[in-house]
Design a binder for these strands. Sequence first.
RNA 1: GACCCCGUAGCUCAGCUGGAUAGAGCACCCGCCUUCUAAGCGGGUGGUCACAGGUUCGAAUCCUGUCGGGGUCGCCA
Length: 592
Amino acid sequence: MNIFQTFKSRIDSVIGDLMTEGALPAGLDLTRVAAEPPREASHGDIATNAAMILAKPAGKPPRAIADMLVERLKKLPDVTDASVAGPGFINLKINDDIWRGALRDVLAEGVSYGDAAIGGNVPVNVEYVSANPTGPMHVGHARGAVIGDALANLLAKAGYKVTKEYYINDAGGQVDNVARALRMRYLQVLGKVTADDVKGALERKEIQYGGEYLIPCAEALAKRDGDKWVNVADDAQWIPPLRDFTVEFMMRIVKEDLAAMGIKHDVFTSEKKLTQAGKIDDALKFMDEKGLTYTGVLEPPKGKTPDDYEPRPQLLFKATEFGDEIDRPLKKSSGAWTYFAADIAYHKDKVDRGFFDLVNIWGADHGGYVKRVEAALKAITGGRGKLDVLLAQMVRVFNNGEPVKMSKRAGTFVTMRDLIDEVGKDVVRFIMLTRKNDAPLDFDYAKVTEKSRENPVFYVQYAYARGRSVFRHAAEMFAGADLSDKGLAAANLARLTDPDEIGVMRLMASWPRTVEGAALAHEPHRLAFYMYDLASAFHALWNKGNDAVELRFLQADDKEVSLARLALVRAVGLVIASGLAVFGVEPVEEMR
RNA sequence: GACCCCGUAGCUCAGCUGGAUAGAGCACCCGCCUUCUAAGCGGGUGGUCACAGGUUCGAAUCCUGUCGGGGUCGCCA
């Protein structure tokens, strides 16, 4: 139940009446008319911009429309006052029972409070992580993973039918390269070469992956196959089996790490399988039939001309017709499909599976790739498909202000597993969501575990834990009382009269619209800020009891007011838990 | 050279898709523990929303340009 939505439709129907009566011209567009909490609580409970929105199309000054509306709005149920302010805002004051009703909704719905129907059960595909199976995931992947997972949860909460998907890049040159590196490590494990030999090969660029994480993989290979591959010289003989072995090994690690992060994808799509099933050929044939491709020559790239550039005719996608800068190549000089060609097939595959609403989470270094995939989706769906690519910006890792050195060459990068081991998955997940995806994020091991207001994870968890503490005391003070959510819903909430108590209820009443707004904007981080605000209001209320003893939640001689306040405390906990559930974070019962 | 992201208090960041006097935390100053966890709370100081134009009842938000920071730039994935 979204109170603001309820009032928006009531306001709409008042305007509708005025149109029917001829006081306003018929057919006015009301989509931009909003009912929202005013910036200043002192202005009232609900503000609407209706008069200002309608002024121009109605051909009347905003104040005139506002005056007319105010008369009608005053008569609406639950409205105690309506007034015009500023340039034409209408502020409504409503009966406090509305907020008390919201509190009851929270108790009745539990962590489902805030669930919305705006998604209309429309299928949405959220593709995230999709890290190459060439090594363990690092901090950057962790951020993308958390953003994608939380966004998927958020969209599900908002009523979309969400599929969480992972694209495995198990075809192409990179997996061949990792197979070459694995072979070196394999030889090392069998004592045929030394660690220095491996290092040398890396420096001579004979292999590209020098990380020691390949050693366990090589050991597993040696255990399975013995020295079977030592004397096999023909690339075509050993690369495919070793590549498959590595991919399988790495994907197992990836899945384990994701599980440790609390992430489970519904669908894993393999680029290799897509290729083998002929999906790329099919997709390109489809494009060709639609006249979306041609053979042509590209200009050399400006600013950074590759040494080996030579103009040649190649198969291109008419990306410029769909908003891209240049037409994009589909075939390499070797005759193999480009990564982009495979990606077109992959996105077409998603569409063929019924998804027209797609979200991809990528690292910011892939920003240059966005337009061409958007163009491709537009082309293959005739404009029907929607793709939103969220770029996860850089994460910088610190320890108490000191940057943690990362070098991919030396293999000393911070892995996702490092983060989880160091501070726990709940902290990682929450912190990753305290910034919008396109802003850089600083992750400081020391600060994210600090117990202070500066640390949002702690601050929100502390609010929840404090609430639980009150309940532990209440169970003693009122032994035998029904403190279940259902029992508390029956409390006499009219006893909640303090402005700060009303304020907390008001904040909880805006949780559903916060969820909707965040879902529509694909911005899960908004929930982090909401939770922080709610926690703050709760801590303030708690502390008010320091000065005013009569405001403490538990009053031994007044069970009725105590139960009403317990209902409030519980509801705050439930709303926080509802937000944490979207984030995939467990609320804590007690701070230790 | 082109494209993408960013520029808001001394610092780190919000700003609910165009609304009212731009908000938090940190830092700095002043208060609050015989108390359900003071791991907290209240108050104060602090802003030309990078800059210049434009769009309209109204712009931090949308458009154009400039400056500054980051990223990317056929046949890598």
